[in-house]
Design a binder for these strands. Sequence first.
DNA 1: CGGAGGATTGACCAACGTCAAACCCGGTGG
DNA 2: CCACCGGGTTTGACGTTGGTCAATCCTCCG
Lengths: 253, 253
Amino acid sequence: MRTHIPSGRLPEEPSPIADDGDETHFCRTCAFSSACLSVGYAKPQLAELHCLVEHIGPYHADEYVFRTDAPFRAIYAVRAGMVKTRVLDGDGREHVLGFYLPGEVIGLNAIYPERFPCDAIALDTAHFCRFSFPAMSQLASRMPAVQQELFRMLSKELGSASRLAGDHSADERVAAFLIDLGDRFAERGFSGERFRLSMSRGDIANYLRLASETVSRVLTRFRQQGLIAVDGRELVLVKPDQLRQLAKSLIGR
Amino acid sequence: MRTHIPSGRLPEEPSPIADDGDETHFCRTCAFSSACLSVGYAKPQLAELHCLVEHIGPYHADEYVFRTDAPFRAIYAVRAGMVKTRVLDGDGREHVLGFYLPGEVIGLNAIYPERFPCDAIALDTAHFCRFSFPAMSQLASRMPAVQQELFRMLSKELGSASRLAGDHSADERVAAFLIDLGDRFAERGFSGERFRLSMSRGDIANYLRLASETVSRVLTRFRQQGLIAVDGRELVLVKPDQLRQLAKSLIGR
DNA sequence: CGGAGGATTGACCAACGTCAAACCCGGTGG
DNA sequence: CCACCGGGTTTGACGTTGGTCAATCCTCCG
């Protein structure tokens, strides 16, 4: 059974697309814009960053952005759409490492092995900025703010990876997942309480280490309890505080 | 019941201690030595690294090296002994993020939040090198090899964090844990098949998301199957290949 | 209108957690 | 020297959460 989502099809929400960069401006949501702008680099320095960026896309749902074992040459910032990264284990079971929104960066886990340790697959129609990593680290040597931003991104991702590693109930994990996604949408200027889950229930399950049936059941229960409203992949967090309460053992401190 | 470990108390094994650094030499196992030496930096540059290092310790078992929420100023390389990092969740349950051997570095996950997101607790008598992080990143800007090494360490840790996040049976997780530890001992020049588990069964359990009883049961089963020999915390991997086989869904791609 | 893939729901089951008892070892003090 | 104590470890019995299998439904498409 479905819940009718209150005011229809999210008419006035900005779509989670930030494809607004050009030759001299960063996309509104870009992970790197803050690295430079906030520290006051002027246009000429920005140009350096721009000249190592390559806009790629569109990729359509289910298309690979990069594949496991491909040699690592670049990191990718999501400009529009949504992606998942995943590994397939020996038995062919999928483990989803993460979902990435516009403004977020993928490929950082490939630096050490010098090959991508995972696949990246578009969930939506998605666009990216590709940053050559050698060029990027060279730039980082000259621009401490860029270096700092790379350190921060890596460290941040380390934090979220270990959050998932904890052992928690299905309810806690699903609640934490919804809250985290909402917070990240909000961080990028979208609504944090009303958004689209571009991934399938199976993807969510493979991310949270649950069976897709369990994800389904938990979502249904949350809906019955009035915590959320779901219509297919459209989602509203009706009682975010209560969800956050549920999730607090995971979200941590 | 206990297995008598073949040749007694590991008499001729080098103890996992690498406290052999001085004012002009790195410890044999140091994570940073390769960053500089392998790229051919001469003594003067090395001196720069040395002057931002501070030797601290000894810490005894159960002593804190740093605590959750303490402001982040430095990263720590283990010189001798073993440490765990851990978080306590809302209900006071412990989640162990990792165990660290001589030559490995802790504190990288504190860069982004600018506070330590976890406690670090000695399991043994342990010594450390403390590297001021501001000084370190400044140095990284001037020495690409240092910057590169930091990126690599962060990326590597990201890899291991997501490995644990997968969903696997208790057997697979314990096997992977033993193999991983052995590989890391070997990487640092110690025996990879005969070593001491400085942490309690409970610590292992909190790391692997199992109950300590389950860890105990799996270890006894492995012993009965002749895969390992255990005497308290002394361990021998009798059939590493078979363990690696068991662990492959976790270790591998 | 029909087909296909995802989502939901239900019934059953197994892996692992919980609770509890016994055990082992090292340490301490009489 | 030995008895006692205490924490960690092992082992056993049992319960619960979430996985598996299967049927149905829904929705998006052609």
